[in-house]
Amino acid sequence: MPQLDTSTWFTVISSMMITLFIIFQLKILNHQILIKPQTTFLEQTKYNTPWEEKWTKTYLPLS
Protein backbone atom coordinates (compact mmCIF):
# COMPACT_ATOMS: atom_id res chain seq x y z
CA MET A 1 0.00 0.00 0.00
CA PRO A 2 1.53 3.36 -0.99
CA GLN A 3 2.35 5.97 1.60
CA LEU A 4 0.60 9.33 1.60
CA ASP A 5 2.95 12.05 0.46
CA THR A 6 2.64 14.94 2.92
CA SER A 7 5.66 16.93 1.81
CA THR A 8 3.60 19.55 -0.02
CA TRP A 9 0.98 20.05 2.68
CA PHE A 10 2.80 22.94 4.33
CA THR A 11 3.04 24.83 1.05
CA VAL A 12 -0.59 24.21 0.16
CA ILE A 13 -1.92 25.22 3.59
CA SER A 14 0.30 28.30 3.75
CA SER A 15 -0.74 29.52 0.34
CA MET A 16 -4.38 28.86 1.15
CA MET A 17 -4.14 30.93 4.36
CA ILE A 18 -2.45 33.82 2.56
CA THR A 19 -5.04 33.73 -0.21
CA LEU A 20 -7.93 33.70 2.26
CA PHE A 21 -6.39 36.61 4.15
CA ILE A 22 -6.05 38.64 0.94
CA ILE A 23 -9.60 37.85 -0.14
CA PHE A 24 -10.92 38.83 3.28
CA GLN A 25 -9.00 42.11 3.20
CA LEU A 26 -10.35 42.92 -0.25
CA LYS A 27 -13.90 42.19 0.88
CA ILE A 28 -13.79 44.44 3.93
CA LEU A 29 -12.04 47.18 1.99
CA ASN A 30 -15.34 48.01 0.26
CA HIS A 31 -17.20 48.63 3.53
CA GLN A 32 -17.24 52.08 5.05
CA ILE A 33 -16.79 52.10 8.78
CA LEU A 34 -17.97 55.10 10.77
CA ILE A 35 -15.19 56.29 13.02
CA LYS A 36 -17.38 58.11 15.53
CA PRO A 37 -21.05 57.32 15.19
CA GLN A 38 -23.30 60.02 16.55
CA THR A 39 -26.16 59.06 18.75
CA THR A 40 -29.51 60.68 18.18
CA PHE A 41 -31.69 61.35 21.15
CA LEU A 42 -35.36 60.97 20.57
CA GLU A 43 -37.65 63.24 22.51
CA GLN A 44 -39.96 61.27 24.70
CA THR A 45 -43.56 62.36 24.60
CA LYS A 46 -45.13 62.66 28.01
CA TYR A 47 -48.73 61.62 28.15
CA ASN A 48 -50.97 63.12 30.79
CA THR A 49 -52.86 60.41 32.57
CA PRO A 50 -55.45 61.13 35.24
CA TRP A 51 -53.82 58.97 37.90
CA GLU A 52 -50.46 60.74 37.79
CA GLU A 53 -51.71 63.93 39.41
CA LYS A 54 -53.88 62.30 42.06
CA TRP A 55 -52.69 60.86 45.32
CA THR A 56 -54.00 57.40 45.92
CA LYS A 57 -53.67 55.32 49.02
CA THR A 58 -52.80 51.66 48.76
CA TYR A 59 -54.59 49.52 51.31
CA LEU A 60 -53.15 46.30 52.61
CA PRO A 61 -55.48 43.30 52.71
CA LEU A 62 -57.14 42.60 56.02
CA SER A 63 -55.32 40.06 58.07
Rank of each mutant, 00 (worst) to 15 (best):
I13R: 06
I13L: 14
E53D: 15
H31F: 09
S7E: 02
W51M: 13
H31C: 04
F10E: 06
W51P: 00
P2I: 13
N48W: 10
W9A: 07
S14I: 01
E52A: 09
H31Y: 12
S15R: 06
M1Q: 08
F41T: 14
L42K: 14
K54F: 12
I28Y: 10
W55N: 14
L20W: 03
T6K: 08
T39Y: 11
L4P: 07
L62K: 03
P37N: 01
K54Q: 11
W55C: 09
T45R: 12
L34M: 06
P37D: 04
H31P: 03
T40G: 14
I23C: 01
I18A: 04
S7R: 06
S63A: 06
L26A: 02
M17S: 07
Q3V: 09
W9Y: 10
L29S: 09
K57Y: 09
K36W: 08
T39W: 06
I18S: 02
S14C: 04
I28Q: 00
I35K: 06
K57M: 14
I33G: 02
T6G: 12
S15G: 03
L4W: 06
L34F: 15
T39H: 07
E43C: 07
P37M: 02
N48C: 08
I33D: 00
T40Y: 11
N48A: 14
Q3Y: 11
S15K: 09
M16Q: 09
Q38N: 02
M1P: 10
Y59Q: 02
Q3P: 08
W9P: 04
F24K: 00
S63G: 09
T45S: 10
K54G: 15
I28W: 05
E53K: 14
K57L: 08
T40L: 08
P37L: 01
P61E: 15
L29T: 00
L29M: 08
M1N: 14
P50V: 04
I18G: 01
W51S: 06
N48I: 14
T49N: 12
S15M: 02
Q25D: 02
W51G: 05
W55K: 14
Q38F: 08
M17P: 00
E43R: 05
F24P: 01
S7W: 04
Q44P: 01
Q38K: 05
T56R: 10
L62R: 06
T11H: 03
T58P: 11
M1K: 07
T19Y: 00
T56V: 10
S14G: 08
T39M: 07
L60Y: 13
E53I: 15
E52V: 15
N48D: 13
K36R: 14
T19R: 04
L20M: 01
K36S: 12
E52F: 10
P50M: 11
S63I: 07
F41R: 07
S63R: 03
E43S: 09
T8Q: 05
T8I: 01
T19D: 00
L4Q: 13
I28T: 02
K54E: 15
W9M: 10
M1E: 13
L20R: 02
T49M: 15
W55P: 12
T56K: 10
T6R: 15
M17F: 05
T6M: 09
Q38L: 02
T49E: 14
F24S: 05
H31A: 07
Y47P: 07
P37S: 03
T19S: 02
